[in-house]
C-alpha cells in the first residue's frame, strides 16, 4: 500500500478531530478524502505526513512507519498545500532549484529537470518571472511542479483547485490525470464533488473525524442514492410547497432547500408528467451525482 492508516485518532483540547479513521491507498491510484469544512481532512493529511503525532493509531507511508520515519518517507512524497507558500523572493526556476535542495538533490540534477517541470506546469516562458507576477492558477501549477521536483511516488494535494477559475481547474485536472497515468499515487482532499468524481478511483467521506462512506464514486452513487434527481424551483409563484406536498409520493425521497425541492427518484416519468402541467415552477432533470451523496451523508446545514 502507498498509504495505510488504521485506527487513527487526534485530539485538540479535548475535541476529537480525527476519531478512529482507517483507510488504505493502493499505489498508482487517485484517492479522495472528502468532507465538509472542519471534518478533519487537513489534520488527517498532516498526520499522514508526520507533521503532528497521532494520539492513537498506525500510519505507514511509502512502507515507512509514521511519524517515526516520516523524514525518510517524505523523500518519496510531494505535497501541494492548501495555501500557496511559494518563495516570493525567487523566480519560478529558483523556487524549484531551492526546493530540490531540501530533498538533498544536486543543483545540476535539479537544473536539468527544471525545463520539463516548468513545461508540465505550462510555465515554460515564466522561468525568470517573480512569484508576485503570477496568476492564482499559475501559482498552483508551480506549486504542483515544485511538489514533483524530487520525482515522488506519492503526491498529496490539499484542495488543489480551490479559488481557481474553470480554465485553471481543468488544466490542473488534466495534469493530475497525466500524473496518475505515469503511475503516481495521488491523495487528494477536496470539497468539489465534480473534481472527486472525475479524478478519484476510490474515496472516503469523513465527517467529525469519522469515515461515513467509502468506495468508488460510482459505487457511492449506486449505494447511497436514487439514480435520478429532479430539482424543482419556485419562480415566485409560491406554489412549490403545495406541489411538493401533493407529489411527494412520486419520489423516493424529497428534500427542501430554500426555494428548491429535490426529488430523488428511481422512476422519474410520473413526476415529469406532473411538472409539465405545473405553472410557475421550473425544473431540472439530471442523473444524481456525488454531490447528492455528499449532501445526503453530511446534511445541508452550513459548516463554517
Amino acid at each position: 500500500m502507498a498509504l495505510d492508516v488504521a485506527g487513527l485518532r487526534k485530539n485538540y483540547a479535548g475535541n476529537e478531530v480525527v476519531a478512529g479513521l482507517s483507510f488504505a491507498v493502493e499505489p498508482g491510484t487517485c484517492f479522495g478524502l472528502l468532507g465538509p469544512n472542519g471534518a478533519g481532512k487537513t489534520t488527517t493529511l498532516r498526520l499522514c505526513l508526520g507533521l503532528t503525532a497521532p494520539d492513537a493509531g498506525e500510519i505507514r507511508l511509502a512502507g515507512r512507519p509514521i511519524p517515526a520515519e516520516a523524514q525518510v518517507a517524505r523523500a518519496k512524497v510531494g505535497v501541494v498545500p492548501q495555501f500557496d507558500n511559494l518563495d516570493p523572493d525567487f523566480s519560478c526556476a529558483e523556487n524549484l532549484l531551492v526546493f530540490g535542495r531540501y530533498f538533498g538533490l544536486k543543483d545540476a540534477d535539479v537544473r536539468r529537470r527544471i525545463p520539463a517541470l516548468l513545461d508540465f506546469a505550462s510555465l515554460a516562458n515564466k522561468a525568470e518571472a517573480r512569484i508576485a507576477t503570477l496568476s492564482g492558477g499559475m501559482k498552483r501549477r508551480l506549486t504542483l511542479a515544485r511538489a514533483l521536483v524530487a520525482d515522488p511516488d506519492i503526491v498529496f494535494l490539499d484542495e488543489p483547485t480551490t479559488g481557481l477559475d474553470p480554465q485553471a481547474r481543468h488544466l490542473i485536472w488534466e495534469r493530475l490525470k497525466q500524473l496518475k497515468a505515469a503511475g503516481k499515487t495521488l491523495i487528494l482532499t477536496t470539497h468539489f464533488m465534480d473534481e472527486a468524481e472525475r479524478l478519484c478511483d476510490r474515496l472516503i467521506v469523513i465527517d467529525h473525524g469519522r469515515k461515513i462512506a467509502e468506495g468508488s464514486p460510482r459505487e457511492l452513487i449506486a449505494t447511497h442514492i436514487e439514480a435520478q434527481v429532479i430539482e424543482v424551483f419556485d419562480e415566485s409563484s409560491g406554489r412549490l410547497p403545495e406541489f411538493t406536498e401533493n407529489h411527494r409520493h412520486l419520489a423516493a425521497r424529497v428534500e427542501l432547500s430554500g426555494d428548491t425541492a429535490f426529488f430523488y427518484c428511481r422512476e422519474p416519468q410520473p413526476l415529469l408528467a406532473a411538472l409539465a402541467g405545473a405553472d410557475g415552477l421550473r425544473y431540472l432533470h439530471r442523473a444524481s451525482n456525488l454531490e447528492d451523496v455528499f449532501i445526503k451523508l453530511t446534511g445541508r446545514e452550513l459548516r463554517d
Partner: peptide, 14 residues
C-alpha cells in the same frame, strides 16, 4: 507570514 517553514517541513527536512 510567508509560510516558508511549512513548505520546508513537507520535504525530508525536519
Amino acid at each position: 507570514v510567508q509560510k516558508t517553514w511549512d513548505a520546508i517541513l513537507n520535504t525530508p527536512l525536519g
